[in-house]
């Protein structure tokens, strides 16, 4: 497992299992932390992981800057012929995913296992 914490209060970790990276975030994904998140996402993808499950279950606040980081990750994996599944259960996060139109562009799953299953079903 790799991890990064920073002064913004956002903690990021990731593990790779069966060619799928699970990236877990804890804290606020906002204007104060989105650059740290984008940098971390880029590191995960450029390390060779193009199928990513992004676990936002412990993200208690997300803003448009945070969603920009998610969109950047989506563009990055798609550009590398990969896929992204987002796990979100907090109402604030799911509401903004809906308002941003991202629900039609990526798999949104209630749990990590279902997110992983969605990627396996799509990519094998």
């Amino acid at each position: 497992m790799a991890s990064a914490g920073n002064a913004t209060g956002l903690k990021l970790t990731h593990t790779i299992d069966n060619m799928i990276a699970l990236v877990q975030l804890r804290g606020h994904l906002d204007g104060n932390s989105h650059i740290a998140a984008e940098t971390y996402f880029k590191m995960v993808v450029t390390s060779g992981s193009t199928r990513v499950v992004l676990d936002l279950a412990q993200v208690d606040f997300i803003s448009s800057a945070g969603l920009r980081a998610v969109i950047s990750l989506l563009k990055l994996v798609k550009g590398n012929h990969g896929g992204l599944a987002v796990c979100a259960s907090q109402p604030h996060v799911t509401q903004l995913l809906e308002f941003s139109g991202l629900k039609t562009l990526l798999s949104i799953a209630p749990t990590v296992d279902e997110g992983r299953a969605a990627l396996v079903a799509r990519f094998g």
Partner: peptide, 24 residues
């Protein structure tokens, strides 16, 4: 308002903030 129907390749990275203020 941002065009939310564009495919990901054509989506702008920004432009959501004021949309959220209006929507919420």
């Amino acid at each position: 308002a941002p065009d939310l129907d564009l495919p990901i390749e054509q989506r702008q990275i920004g432009g959501l903030g004021i949309h959220f203020v209006r929507s919420t």
